[in-house]
Amino acid sequence: MASAPAAGIGFKPQHADDALRCRAEALWLEVHPENYLVDGGPRLALLDALAARFPLSLHGVSLSLAAAAPPDATHLARLRRLIDRVQPVLVSEHLAWSSWDGRHLPDLLPFPRSHEALARVVANVSRTQDVLGRRIALENPAHYLPLDGHDWSETDFLAELVRRSGCGLLLDINNVLVSAHNLGGDARRYVDAFPLEAVTEIHLAGHTVDAGLGDALWIDSHDAAVSEEAWALYRHAIARGGPRPTLIERDGNVPAFAVLLAERERAQRLLAAQAIAA
């Protein structure tokens, strides 16, 4: 990453030629490591080419760190080999679970923030960091329905997780907005309570409304441009916590690389202005 926090783009293979030709200052790219846990071939060769040109961030989606079982040892070993190969500047995962008692689900699922859950997540994060040989960051989740059984607020849970495990945090601005809208919370108050000193990366993405419920339920779909509400909350976050490496995410309805680069440039300008103001 550049010496001053910069903005990046979530990489998509259809943008390979455009990305490799791009000369935008301080640009970095983020990938899901699960797409590159192979022993060779064109996919890994492409990642090597990107790593030779840009700082990389690895954003995992499958460690299931809130599950009862520890992270899969084989998966961790493969991830460690990929990290050693491309030397990413950031590694992150989600505060969620996707596997339980041998069952695997294609989603990032929430859980009651109990004392037991905290101990479990701390143990899984600590094991992951020990195997990977580096600190990782955990992303705050998006919520769609209220859950019972919480002993901790989400921000307090995250702060205690950082204190016990030494991990960092990834602040996903759109997740904050979606959760606040769906559960009736206050997005700005959430950011004010967030342990911003532990944030190593920020994500910006777009959302859509549910096909059946309309505006009553927002979906963290990553298939639209970053909303003006998200830009406003992002400005508030970096004003309070300072500039942080910031990613533009788009996973559906992926536009041309130039469109994503324009969103990235908006984030870059905000980061630069905040650095001057500080």
Results as ranks from 00 to 15, higher is better:
Lys12Asn: 13
Pro13Ser: 14
Gln14Met: 09
Gln14Ala: 14
Gln14Tyr: 07
His15Lys: 03
Ala16Gln: 12
Ala16Asp: 06
Ala16Thr: 11
Asp17Ala: 15
Asp18Leu: 13
Asp18Val: 10
Ala19Ile: 08
Leu20Gln: 09
Arg21Cys: 11
Cys22Trp: 02
Glu25Ile: 09
Glu25Trp: 09
Glu25Ala: 13
Leu27His: 02
Leu27Gln: 00
Trp28Thr: 07
Leu29Met: 07
Leu29Gln: 05
His32Trp: 07
Pro33Tyr: 10
Pro33Asn: 12
Pro33Ala: 13
Glu34Asn: 07
Glu34Val: 12
Glu34Asp: 15
Leu37Asn: 05
Leu37Met: 15
Val38Asp: 02
Asp39Ile: 01
Asp39Gly: 15
Gly40His: 11
Gly40Glu: 14
Gly40Met: 06
Pro42Cys: 08
Arg43Ile: 14
Leu46Asp: 04
Leu46Asn: 05
Leu47Ser: 07
Leu50Pro: 10
Leu50Asp: 14
Ala51Phe: 02
Ala51Val: 02
Ala52Tyr: 01
Arg53Ile: 04
Phe54Val: 12
Pro55Gly: 13
Pro55Ile: 08
Leu56Tyr: 11
Leu56Met: 10
Ser57Leu: 05
Leu58Arg: 03
His59Val: 09
Gly60Val: 10
Ser64Gly: 14
Leu65Gly: 08
Leu65Cys: 15
Pro70Gly: 09
Pro71Met: 11
Thr74Leu: 11
His75Asp: 04
Leu76Lys: 00
Arg78Thr: 01
Arg78Phe: 02
Arg78Ile: 00
